[in-house]
Design a protein around this nucleic acid. Structure first.
Length: 168
DNA sequence: TTATCGATGGTA
DNA sequence: ACCATCGATAAA
């Protein structure tokens, strides 16, 4: 799913404005056995949504100031998700707006706790539109998960080769 | 260009 | 006591 989501469009409707970004960087968090995945903490008030039905948003707060957006990707009870890390602006963004980086993109799109558990298949407020397959996909270890033991090295980050909207 | 550090609060 | 981060600033 993390690979397939590359090239798809993330659409945000907010205060009468439409923002469209092309997904160029993702990370897979594959389930409770993945020590970097929040589902590995078991079912808690925070992680409950990860174990829910696919297609729902998992938005959580990190480092006291940032919201990160994920989509639940497997069937109910599985506990896996894909994190959005980079968007290429397509429409609606201010000139110079930065949409590279998982926290920057949520800030620009006005995504916060309000959208946690939101059904992304409804086609309102926040949704995903399929796009042409990305030709050149690179992969590598996920960012900022050094604590996750052997899972820290797992090459579960995916991005479009050479795209400048991939985070640094 | 790369490194360091402070901001800031939910979670377990 | 961590932490799926960013931006400003300093160092090189």
């Amino acid at each position: 799913m993390a690979r397939d989501l590359l090239g798809c469009l993330l659409v945000r409707e907010r205060e009468g404005r439409l923002f469209v970004g092309r997904i160029v960087e993702t990370e897979a968090y594959v389930g409770p056995h993945d020590l970097a995945c929040h589902a590995s903490r078991g079912i808690t008030p925070r992680t409950k949504v990860l174990y829910g039905p696919p297609g729902h948003a998992y938005v959580y707060f990190v480092y006291g100031m940032h919201f990160l957006l994920n989509v639940v990707t497997e069937r109910e009870g599985h506990g896996s998700a894909v994190l959005f890390r980079g968007l290429e602006p397509v429409e609606g963004f201010a000139r110079g707006a930065r949409t590279d980086g998982p926290a920057r993109l949520t800030r620009v799109l006005g995504i916060d706790k309000e959208l946690n558990r939101w059904d992304l298949t409804l086609g309102e407020r926040l949704w995903i539109v399929s796009g042409p397959r990305v030709e050149r996909i690179a992969r590598g270890p996920r960012i900022g998960v050094d604590y996750a033991g052997a899972w820290a090295q797992a090459p579960l980050r995916f991005w479009e080769e050479g795209n400048p909207w991939v985070s640094r």
